[in-house]
Measured scan of single mutants.
Amino acid sequence: TTVHIGNVTYHFDNPEEAVKWAKEMAEKLGLRIEIHGDTIRVE
């Protein structure tokens, strides 16, 4: 599972961890997340 924040990509072996981490980052940055299969974007 990959999480994209701007130009930076993070890789997670556990999809649930990826979603949890992306949600925390989105809250901190005042952004929202979009999930497309195994790709998560924070925008």
Rank of each mutant, 00 (worst) to 15 (best):
T1D: 02
T1A: 11
T1H: 06
T1V: 14
T1K: 07
T2G: 03
T2R: 10
T2F: 08
T2K: 13
V3W: 00
V3Q: 00
V3M: 01
V3A: 01
V3G: 01
V3K: 01
V3C: 03
H4D: 04
H4P: 01
H4I: 15
H4K: 11
H4G: 03
H4W: 11
I5S: 01
I5C: 07
I5G: 01
I5L: 10
I5P: 00
I5F: 09
I5Q: 01
G6Y: 08
G6M: 09
G6F: 12
G6E: 07
G6D: 07
G6C: 07
G6P: 01
G6H: 10
N7M: 09
N7Y: 09
V8F: 14
V8E: 12
V8K: 15
V8I: 13
T9M: 12
T9K: 13
T9W: 09
T9D: 08
Y10T: 04
Y10D: 01
Y10H: 06
Y10L: 11
Y10C: 08
Y10N: 03
H11L: 09
H11Q: 07
F12T: 00
F12S: 00
F12W: 03
F12Y: 03
F12G: 00
F12A: 01
D13V: 09
D13A: 11
D13F: 07
D13I: 08
D13N: 11
D13C: 12
D13Y: 07
N14T: 11
N14L: 07
N14Q: 06
N14F: 06
N14P: 01
P15H: 15
P15M: 15
P15W: 15
P15A: 14
P15E: 10
P15G: 08
P15C: 11
E16P: 03
E16W: 10
E16A: 12
E16T: 10
E16H: 10
E16R: 08
E16Y: 11
E17M: 09
E17F: 09
E17R: 05
E17W: 09
E17A: 12
E17I: 08
E17D: 13
A18H: 00
A18V: 02
A18F: 04
A18S: 01
A18E: 00
V19T: 07
V19D: 03
V19M: 15
V19A: 08
K20R: 14
K20A: 12
K20G: 04
K20H: 07
K20F: 06
K20V: 07
K20W: 06
K20N: 09
K20L: 10
W21H: 02
W21C: 04
W21R: 01
W21T: 01
W21S: 01
W21N: 01
W21Q: 01
W21F: 14
A22S: 03
A22G: 03
A22C: 04
A22V: 04
A22D: 00
A22Y: 02
K23S: 10
K23M: 13
K23V: 11
K23W: 09
K23F: 09
K23C: 13
K23Y: 11
K23R: 11
E24P: 01
E24D: 10
E24M: 14
E24V: 10
E24L: 11
M25E: 04
M25F: 07
M25V: 12
M25G: 00
M25S: 02
M25C: 06
M25Y: 08
A26Q: 03
A26R: 02
A26L: 03
E27N: 09
E27Q: 06
E27S: 05
E27P: 03
E27D: 13
E27M: 06
E27I: 06
E27A: 07
E27F: 06
E27V: 05
E27W: 04
K28R: 12
K28W: 08
K28I: 13
L29N: 10
L29R: 04
L29S: 06
L29F: 10
L29M: 10
L29A: 08
L29P: 03
L29V: 04
G30R: 05
G30Q: 08
G30L: 04
G30F: 04
G30Y: 03
L31A: 15
L31G: 15
L31P: 01
L31N: 04
R32I: 15
R32H: 15
R32C: 12
R32M: 15
R32D: 12
R32S: 15
R32K: 15
R32V: 15
R32P: 10
I33A: 05
I33K: 00
I33R: 00
I33V: 14
I33Q: 01
E34V: 15
E34W: 07
E34A: 14
E34S: 15
E34C: 14
I35R: 04
I35D: 03
I35E: 04
I35M: 09
I35C: 08
I35A: 04
I35L: 06
I35Y: 09
H36L: 13
H36V: 13
H36K: 12
H36Q: 13
H36C: 10
H36S: 12
H36W: 11
G37E: 06
G37I: 04
G37T: 04
G37A: 06
G37P: 04
G37M: 05
D38S: 13
D38H: 12
D38Y: 02
D38W: 01
D38P: 07
D38M: 09
D38Q: 12
D38E: 08
T39Y: 10
T39C: 13
T39P: 02
T39E: 11
T39V: 13
T39F: 09
I40F: 01
I40Q: 01
I40Y: 00
I40N: 02
I40E: 02
I40S: 02
I40D: 01
R41Q: 05
R41L: 13
R41D: 04
R41Y: 15
R41K: 10
R41P: 02
R41H: 14
R41F: 15
V42I: 14
V42R: 02
V42W: 02
V42G: 03
V42S: 03
V42C: 04
V42N: 02
E43L: 15
E43V: 15
E43I: 15
E43P: 05
E43Y: 13
E43F: 15
E43K: 14
E43N: 12
E43R: 14
